[in-house]
Amino acid sequence: MTTHEQPTGNLTFDECWDLLDSDTLGRLAVVVDGHPEIFPVNYVVHRRSIVFRTSGVTKLWNAKEERPAALEIDGYDPHTEEAWSVVARGGTGVIEDQADRDAVDILGLEPWQPGEKVHYIRLSARALTGRRFKVTRPDVWNTRVQDRRRASFE
């Protein structure tokens, strides 16, 4: 290991779920017409799955076809100077049961974007991975002024 490399650590299954549960915004990746598309979605964790709402079209079509998808979240803690990333991969499906929809609504799943989002989509994670790593100090290499890491070192 060189002086500029930092060790990384894999997150446990429970740590991944804790981080997913503590966040509200992720990037949903689906395949559309043979190429990847990525959409920001706000979500909640319900019964160890990820649930979001949509108005339809691409995300709904993928869910109705029960196609695979992935959701990624990441973050940075300026106090510990650590970054982390979690990726959940699995199948999607439409939630039709009103009791499940009500349970999700109680968790505070409200769309950020205006408009009617009447379709509830569940991503059931079949693979869940995450890692945490110490961020390289910005004085080791040049960073942009707006880089969030700078504040914790200045």
Rank of each mutant, 00 (worst) to 15 (best):
N62G: 06
N62W: 01
E65D: 03
E65P: 05
E66F: 03
E66C: 12
R67P: 01
P68D: 08
P68I: 01
A70R: 03
L71E: 05
L71T: 07
I73M: 15
D74C: 04
G75V: 07
G75F: 05
D77M: 11
D77P: 14
T80E: 04
T80S: 15
E81L: 06
W84Q: 03
T92I: 11
V94C: 02
V94N: 00
I95Y: 03
E96Y: 11
E96D: 15
D97M: 02
Q98P: 12
Q98Y: 05
A99E: 13
A99K: 01
A99L: 09
D100L: 12
R101V: 08
R101F: 01
R101H: 00
D105W: 03
I106M: 09
I106C: 07
L107N: 04
L109Q: 00
E110G: 01
W112F: 14
W112M: 15
Q113S: 12
P114G: 05
P114F: 02
P114W: 05
E116A: 09
V118Q: 14
V118G: 13
V118P: 15
V118N: 14
H119F: 15
H119R: 07
Y120N: 00
Y120V: 03
Y120Q: 01
R122C: 06
L123M: 10
S124T: 14
A125T: 00
A125I: 05
R126D: 10
L128E: 04
L128S: 08
T129D: 05
T129V: 10
G130W: 08
R132K: 12
R132M: 14
K134S: 04
K134A: 15
T136K: 13
D139G: 07
V140T: 14
R144F: 07
V145S: 00
V145G: 00
V145Y: 02
Q146K: 07
D147M: 12
R149M: 05
R150A: 14
R150W: 02
A151S: 12
S152N: 11
S152W: 05
